[in-house]
Simulated scan of single mutants.
Amino acid sequence: MHQYKPVEAASLFIEEFYPQCQGAVLAGSVVRGEATDTSDLDIVIFDNKISASYRESLIQFGWPIDVFIHNLTSYKAYFNSDIERARPSLPSMVAEGIILKDEGIIESIKIEAKKLLNKGPAEWSKETINFKRYFLTDTLDDFIGCKNRAEELFIANHLAELASEFVLRTNRQWIGSSKWIVRALKRYDLKFANRFIDAFDGFYRTGEKENVIKIVEEILVPFGGTLFEGFSLGKK
């Protein structure tokens, strides 16, 4: 049981350690109502006195705290980097964040973050789609042919990552890693996400591959299906 509630602890943290900052927001699972017993506080701080962005983790006021410190221009490079990799970590934190302190800067940065999120990631080129198709096909073939249970488990993990990335990016959706894969799929299409999860869950529980194979092949159909013959990479 925490002595302080999330916003209270975060506010106390700002008052004690970053009292001169121009703005701060509390983000993460505690803001989204998804906190667990091991959740921490994600705090983004804007301070025009620092020369370079940095991150640190510590425990204060009974909470594990991840702090992301930026000056009033450095955050833009992180915004751009996150958008390029289609994993908008910092823009999402800023957009969803509860304001802890604001000296007139937070609202404009929030608007900037929300515009980037609403725009979505860049569309994949035909060349990128074919590149991803080939490696998704290759992993699917490994999964189908593998008879070693230990190897199957890790091939399935990789297949789930590649397949989720493919369906999300070809539909101009943001991607994620770990738990964020599931959340991204559910944001895109809840019905499809549940099918995807059920297919892999069924494999992990029973070893049955059919539903996994079916859903991965379906993902590839609109783009020409599986790809092996004719694929070339780096040929002069």
Results as ranks from 00 to 15, higher is better:
37 D>C: 11
20 Q>K: 11
179 K>M: 09
57 S>K: 15
170 T>P: 00
54 Y>T: 08
41 L>R: 02
88 P>K: 02
148 N>F: 13
115 K>C: 09
149 R>C: 13
222 P>T: 09
85 R>P: 06
189 D>N: 06
92 S>Y: 09
134 Y>F: 14
130 N>W: 10
130 N>G: 06
46 F>C: 09
86 A>C: 14
1 M>W: 13
120 G>K: 09
11 S>C: 02
44 V>A: 02
22 Q>W: 10
225 G>Q: 09
89 S>R: 10
203 F>E: 04
222 P>E: 02
176 G>L: 07
3 Q>V: 15
223 F>A: 04
210 E>G: 13
12 L>E: 08
217 E>C: 07
150 A>M: 14
211 N>Q: 15
217 E>V: 11
107 E>N: 05
96 E>R: 07
129 I>W: 07
154 F>P: 03
26 L>P: 02
86 A>R: 14
111 I>L: 12
212 V>C: 02
113 A>N: 04
54 Y>P: 01
147 K>D: 15
150 A>T: 15
214 K>R: 14
93 M>N: 03
98 I>E: 05
173 Q>N: 13
129 I>S: 02
182 V>M: 10
159 L>C: 04
143 F>P: 01
46 F>W: 13
211 N>E: 15
121 P>E: 12
48 N>R: 15
113 A>D: 05
17 F>H: 11
54 Y>C: 10
54 Y>L: 07
223 F>D: 02
122 A>W: 09
